[in-house]
Design a protein around this nucleic acid. Structure first.
Lengths: 212, 212
DNA sequence: TTGCCATGTGGCAGTTCGTGCCATATATTC
DNA sequence: GAATATATGGCACGAACTGCCACATGGCAA
């Protein structure tokens, strides 16, 4: 059998356990909220011990933000598929739209993503943790724009510009997401619309509205 | 006595206790690091009970980030002094430079600020909490650009643009701060230089460097 | 001064998150 | 089927908080 399953029984079990924990956790987050849901309850629901829970996830935040991480990976993958000579913001804009729409033709991926967005937006304790992940993601985005240059050493200017593009982009997405969470819409299309407004106005920001 | 002291004895004691906690905490953060410094040790150093510590600060992060909050307030004050017809990013850029330089002629304020920046940058646990404060600050910045308009109701487009300006600005500052923390410089002037690069390139981002 | 009231403080018990350690159970390999 | 590797569970423990109650201290009026 050439196309043997690469996953051993052990790995399959681990994968299922991990997914089970995620599912149970988010189900509980939906009923109660994040803060009042204890790790003990999640572990019990997933039929593992609390100790084992912490072997799969370093902390409670991590399981809550797992979907966000997934979307980050999707976007990073989409970014790497963009032509190498594209300006950073253009590439990032296209990448996130790819990750949100094209990469899930039925829109299920985006729906699955937005379903977990509200609980995150409501739990203020999660906002900080989410920002941590976003910073890490921004650094990886930035790397895409500097690596490949001749010298491997630090290039302050280039690094600054690459980081700036990445984090300005992430700021735009976050503004869109936060506005979407604050609105009473549950339609992912509204989120995309918000994101388009923000991303488009990012590059023409210098001409934007004046103060009140 | 018309110019009587507005502060009662009680308020003076509270202020001193609060400042004492902050000072002791940051001194300890400097010796050990943030994570290994216990609230118990801080409370003991400030000669208050742990219970009282938590009456002054909701959590350990809050005392660590107190200097950051101060600088945020300074910047917000500086922003409000800018002419009302200035474009958002221009006003924000001027405001933060004012807060960092002009508002403390001797540069002591900025030095005092940067002294606390390194410990924050090193403690990853603090990064998330810092982001929380920054988000709150961004919202207040954004309010400066929408309030005063005729209708008090929500104006999605305006809000999006105002928020975007605020958070893109904050992203630029953060990139500058992070780069400064990552470098081995302890000179506040280098931080200002970084910030200038980031803020200036933010408005011309569309013409910036291409991918590797 | 004396007394009353508001408020700041300390101590203690208890909950939750998170970790180190060790014994046990389950998978993999030979 | 034995030897080995790895996953799991249980327990004890530390640290961050919180609620509750008793006490002390400052502010104020008679």
């Amino acid at each position: 059998m050439p196309e043997q399953q690469a996953e051993s029984l052990r790995e399959r079990k681990k994968r299922r356990t991990r997914q089970s924990i995620i599912d149970v956790a988010h189900a509980l987050f939906h009923v109660n909220d994040y803060d009042t849901t204890t790790v003990e309850a999640i572990a019990a629901g997933a039929e593992v011990s609390v100790r084992t829970f912490f072997r799969y996830f370093a902390n409670k935040e991590e399981v809550a933000l797992a979907p966000l991480d997934e979307m980050g990976e999707l976007t990073l993958t989409a970014l790497r598929r963009r032509p190498a000579d594209e300006p950073p913001l253009t590439a990032l804009r296209a990448a996130v739209l790819d990750a949100w729409t094209i990469m899930s033709p039925d829109g299920e991926s985006l729906r699955h993503y937005t379903d977990h967005l509200l609980p995150i937006g409501k739990a203020s304790a999660l906002a900080g943790a989410a920002q941590n992940r976003i910073v890490a993601l921004g650094d990886r985005f930035a790397l895409e724009f500097v690596e490949g240059d001749d010298a491997g050493g630090p290039q302050p200017r280039t690094d600054l510009h690459a980081s700036l593009a990445a984090f300005a982009f992430l700021a735009a997405v976050q503004v869109a997401v936060r506005a979407w969470c604050a609105s009473d819409s549950t339609d992912p299309a509204d989120l995309v619309a918000n994101a388009l407004i923000c991303l488009d106005s990012l590059v023409v920001e210098r001409n934007s509205a004046h103060r009140a």
